[in-house]
């Protein structure tokens, strides 16, 4: 299982699409690692600078319809090779969400009100995420503040995460 604990990157916008996550011009690369420097390169968002804000992050918190656009798996890979293994959002594009679990990563959907609260309490401050996968709990810590939120994933997605992704799951099982 991957590591789901670490620093949080807040991306305050809905509909962040796969082209913003990883531009199509890098699809000709033949290794995942080659995508690393280009994550979120084309995302223009106030108070976000890809060159400085991604390093050292483990999780992304964003809003509705995250990962919409193409079905390319390069989007979760670009996150993965940067050490980001968790995306928490108010909603996901279906294929992006499944691609995340297929890669053994977490795509956690939370109600909009919870996401709003996370943004107002933690965005802009150094925030640490602690994930208790077995208990289904996310705990956010920043200086002098912390909040625990429960989450659920389906049994199948849970098994994919535990195995480390669809390749490992299928190899062990079929």
């Amino acid at each position: 299982m991957k590591d789901f604990n670490g620093e949080v990157l807040f991306l305050d916008r809905s509909d962040i699409n796969t082209d913003e996550i990883i531009p199509a011009r890098y699809l000709t690369e033949i290794s995942k690692e080659a995508l690393a420097p280009h994550l979120l390169e084309d995302l223009s968002l106030e108070e976000f600078d890809a060159a400085t804000d991604i390093a050292g992050k483990r999780a992304v918190v964003s809003r509705a319809n995250f990962g919409c656009g193409s079905s390319r798996e390069h989007a979760p890979w670009a996150l993965e090779v940067n050490g980001i293994t968790v995306v928490i959002a108010a909603g996901f594009a279906r294929i992006f969400r499944q691609n995340m679990f297929n890669c053994g990563m977490l795509a956690i959907e939370l109600p909009e009100a919870e996401i709003d609260r996370l943004f107002s309490r933690f965005a802009g401050k150094p925030t640490h995420l602690e994930t208790d996968f077995d208990a289904g709990r996310l705990t956010f810590h920043s200086e002098g503040d912390s909040e625990t939120i429960p989450f659920t994933v389906s049994d199948f997605d849970r098994a994919l995460v535990q195995a480390g992704g669809w390749v490992e799951y299928a190899d062990a099982r079929y």
Binding site: E73, I95, N99, V167, A170
Partner: peptide, 16 residues
């Protein structure tokens, strides 16, 4: 299919 499905197809001959 996407790349992960292709990998599993190549490796195990199955797809979901």
């Amino acid at each position: 299919v996407g790349t992960t499905d292709l990998e599993v197809g190549i490796l195990k001959g199955v797809c979901a």
